[in-house]
Amino acid sequence: MRHPPRNGLNCTALSAFKERLMPWLGVLVFASGVVLPIVLHGPGWLGLGLLLSFVGGTWAVLALADARITGSARDEHVSDSQLQAWREMLRQQRPPDEPPTRT
């Protein structure tokens, strides 16, 4: 479902940025956190590298999980008639003498 633009922003371009580039930005921050203490020696750089690695790794994992969840999610707004049609279709598929089971 396409949402109307808010405050002049194109939401489709913003969602495309979020889905495609956000995980890679997290990986880039993670990689810079790993490379930084190797290239620049010192305890301060090591601490900054650990912080960047933790933040970037967490960012990348959460961004990839978000992209996967939103990619397989159904539309947020389902009408009552659609829900009723789905329920009726499921009732017709189930044999009448078998009690309903939870899965």
Rank of each mutant, 00 (worst) to 15 (best):
D80I: 05
R94S: 11
F17T: 03
V39Q: 14
S79V: 00
L21S: 11
A13W: 01
Q84I: 08
V39Y: 05
H77K: 09
D75P: 02
R102F: 10
V34Y: 03
P95V: 02
A63E: 13
G49D: 00
D97L: 06
P99H: 10
H3Y: 11
V34G: 02
P5Y: 01
A65R: 01
A16M: 04
L14Y: 05
V34D: 06
S72K: 06
T101K: 11
R74E: 14
L21M: 11
T12V: 06
L40E: 07
G47T: 06
E88K: 15
H77S: 13
L64V: 10
T12S: 08
V55S: 09
P99K: 06
A65G: 05
H41M: 06
S32K: 06
L51Q: 10
A65C: 10
F54P: 00
W45R: 14
T58I: 10
S81C: 05
R2V: 02
S81F: 04
L28K: 04
G49F: 01
G26A: 07
S79K: 09
L21Q: 12
A16D: 13
M22H: 09
P4L: 12
G33K: 05
G71I: 02
M89Q: 15
P5A: 05
A13M: 09
D66F: 01
A13F: 01
W59A: 14
G26K: 04
Q92F: 02
H3C: 07
M22R: 03
N10R: 04
G47L: 13
R94P: 02
L52F: 11
D80L: 11
S79Q: 05
E76Q: 09
T70V: 03
S72G: 09
R91F: 00
L25E: 14
M22A: 13
L28M: 14
A73V: 02
A31T: 15
S79Y: 01
V61F: 11
L14P: 00
R87Q: 15
V39K: 12
A31E: 08
P37K: 12
M1D: 13
R102H: 07
Q82A: 14
P99N: 08
L36K: 06
G71D: 07
S15H: 07
R68F: 15
N10C: 12
G33F: 03
R6H: 12
G56P: 04
G57D: 04
W86C: 03
R91G: 07
Q93E: 10
P96A: 12
F30W: 13
L64T: 04
L52K: 09
A85T: 05
R87D: 08
N7K: 10
G26S: 11
L52A: 14
A73I: 00
L40F: 12
L62Y: 08
R102G: 13
A65D: 15
P43L: 08
T70M: 10
A67R: 14
D66H: 03
V29C: 13
V78C: 06
S32P: 00
S53N: 03
